[in-house]
Design a protein around this nucleic acid. Structure first.
Lengths: 137, 137
DNA sequence: CAGATACATGAACATTCATTCATATGACAT
DNA sequence: ATGTCATATGAATGAATGTTCATGTATCTG
């Protein structure tokens, strides 16, 4: 995922591996495939969706989001302390999460407090946990 | 995310960047941080959860899952044709998705048909899309 | 203003990981 | 058995990206 396009500049080149490739397979149910092609997820939605999941797929970002889901809001230094991560690291992750509108920043004096900018994140984490806990058994 | 541990061998070393790090911050709300520490997401759940999201965070895997969500089941070659990906590529992705119990394989003659092994995946995709479509506006 | 604190950011580095090629396995037909 | 088709897998490689260091910016204090 071209996740480092968080400077809000959408990538102009197709994401890695999304270039058209030859399909070397012969026994294809052509009709079915054609039918599925219509009703496809539109490319930009697919791209954004992938970015969201990629953001959640990084352990430290996930921990940040999970922490913010429990605490209503936390400043950067509290996140550093809680997660035992370098301030620089946390700031970089927060920048990405901000760009994806997953978190929101609010300045208060010298501190910047972050909170979830989205009700869906909590839901995604919970739904994911359900799967994990079922699959583990 | 240590996603290439899909040989079902859980990594014995901590994932990248999860090693304990010094926290160089001074002005921490210690009480609050301590309170948040309890009730934390347990490490193994966090790891698995990250793996799930990382799996969904890769464009081609996401496209595979989205295709399987619409079609009830598809063989590898149909997936290749639909997504215009190399067979080898698709097989590798499917292997990962299998290991995470996101898809299920069923052999039928020479073909192997894949389907979603999990009701949550559909939900995760839908929830993610909701966010994307809101945030885009 | 000078110094300190909290956070942001750029560049560099190290690692992960997606994709490909080559090849192996498994199933069916002849 | 031999050949072909469908899929799986190992190794290699190139690109993406997480983390760190060094430094910059903003806010408060004295």
């Amino acid at each position: 995922m071209n996740i480092h396009s968080y400077d809000m500049v959408r990538p102009t080149v197709p994401a890695r591996g999304l270039t058209a490739e030859a399909c070397e397979v012969t026994a294809v149910d052509t009709a079915r495939v054609a039918a599925l092609r219509t009703g496809n997820l539109c490319p930009t939605d697919a791209l954004r969706l992938g970015e969201i999941f990629a953001a959640l797929g990084e352990p430290n970002r996930l921990r940040i989001l999970e922490a913010l889901a429990r605490a209503r809001s936390l400043c950067v230094c509290d996140l550093c302390a809680l997660l035992e991560l370098r301030q620089s690291n946390v700031s970089h992750q927060l920048r990405l999460l901000r760009a994806l509108r997953l978190v929101r920043a609010e300045r208060s004096g010298r501190n910047v407090f972050y909170s979830l900018d989205d009700s869906h994140v909590r839901g995604l984490i919970e739904l994911g946990l359900e799967h994990v806990r079922e699959a583990t058994g």
